[in-house]
């Protein structure tokens, strides 16, 4: 096993992408993810890759669209306002059945907001992919190691479902340093997809990457195809972690950085004799319905702990189907939660 090295979340994402075989990156600067393009600009040329600083996030995502159409592993990264601008492009990618990886290091919003950590783009990610009937397959790592690993895996998942995959982090995960066991670099996979354009055709049939279908029935078929892939993802890609007491009286629901806070809060609650359990969705879409359904029969209530005014909580409520009350403990706008606060609020609600 390789040694672990200290790395920031941003660098771990960028290194995970390169290790996975990503050779094309287009992006536009925005804090708190600027170290990702910096790392890419420095290291992609070393492996024969290309970094392009785009003139806007509109341009970034459309450059990604073009590179993805050639079958390449391609990525962009941004933070909340930039991801808003990318929605149209994401919709086109989904409609044209193209894979890509998009990293969102979420910051406080709405508007220009601030560069504090936030989780207020949960809906933008899981209901996003712009207009139309689509969504983004979304994964939410909670450590620098997981940021590295999930970025590495995201490219394969995107190819498998021919859809954009979003890695959802936040300003804190982006900047903090933790030990990482780095993945070995693998070669970029051959671009032998039956839909990829470009290269030398050498007599093969011409190919078209397109999302325009004026025949409504054909358009519906495309939507059914996308929906079927999402159903397949519900079968195969649902991931979650549980932490804490097996005989818990209360469940905390949290993902990403909030889940880290909850882990400490659960340890602290245990010291005070309160048995709590964390359910941490790792895949946000597809959402892990199962553990919530199960635990909703066994506990008095579930608390959704998130850095937003209540977004994750809606998926939790959908999963729980009214079997137990679901409350919100959260901050928004860049304000961080502490374990002490989660402990206090949990005791109040219990």
């Amino acid at each position: 096993m390789t040694q672990r090295v200290m790395m920031t979340g941003n660098n771990a994402v960028a290194e995970g992408a390169i290790a996975s075989g990503c050779r094309y990156f287009c992006g536009y600067p925005i804090t708190p993810q600027n170290d990702i393009p910096k790392y890419m600009a420095e290291h992609l040329p070393e492996v024969g890759g290309v970094f392009v600083q785009a003139e806007s996030e509109l341009a970034s995502i459309n450059m990604v669209y073009g590179a993805a159409a050639t079958g390449a592993y391609v990525m962009t990264s941004s933070s909340s306002p930039g991801i808003s601008l990318m929605q149209e492009g994401l919709s086109y990618m989904l409609g044209s059945e193209l894979p890509c990886v998009v990293v969102n290091m979420v910051r406080g919003g709405p508007g220009l907001g601030n560069i504090g950590p936030a989780q207020s783009d949960y809906w933008l990610a899981t209901r996003g992919a712009g207009h139309g009937d689509g969504r983004c397959l979304t994964f939410a790592p909670d450590s620098v190691q997981e940021l590295h690993d999930w970025t590495f895996e995201a490219f394969g998942i995107a190819q498998k479902y021919r859809a954009p995959v979003m890695i959802l982090g936040d300003a804190l995960l982006a900047g903090m340093s933790e030990p990482v066991r780095l993945r070995e670099h693998r070669e970029p996979p051959p671009r032998d997809q039956e839909w990829a354009v470009g290269g030398l055709r050498e007599g093969r049939q011409r190919r078209i990457v397109n999302s325009l279908w004026t025949d409504v029935e054909v358009m519906e078929e495309l939507n059914q195809r996308i929906a079927a892939r999402f159903s397949q993802a519900r079968e195969n890609e649902v991931r979650w972690e549980e932490y804490g007491a097996d005989d818990a009286e209360i469940v905390l629901a949290a993902y990403g950085i909030s889940a880290r806070v909850c882990k400490t809060a659960i340890d602290d609650l245990a010291e005070d004799g309160i048995k709590a359990r964390l359910i941490r969705p790792i895949s946000l879409f597809p959402f892990p319905v199962e553990p919530f359904r199960e635990w909703s029969e066994r506990v008095s209530r579930i608390i959704s702990v998130e850095l937003s005014m209540g977004q994750l909580i809606e998926d939790v409520r959908l999963a729980v189907e009214g079997r137990c009350p679901v409350d919100l403990v959260g901050h928004s706008g860049g304000v961080m939660l502490t374990p002490d606060e989660v402990v206090c609020r949990t005791k109040e609600l219990l």
Partner: peptide
């Protein structure tokens, strides 16, 4: 056009073309 083709969002053609050309320079 009897070629490979990519349909781009309104106004974004040159960005899409940039992506194609950079990822597939022989094209």
């Amino acid at each position: 056009f009897n070629t490979d083709a990519v349909q781009a969002a309104h106004g974004r053609g040159p960005a899409v073309a940039t992506g194609i050309k950079r990822a597939s320079p022989e094209t």
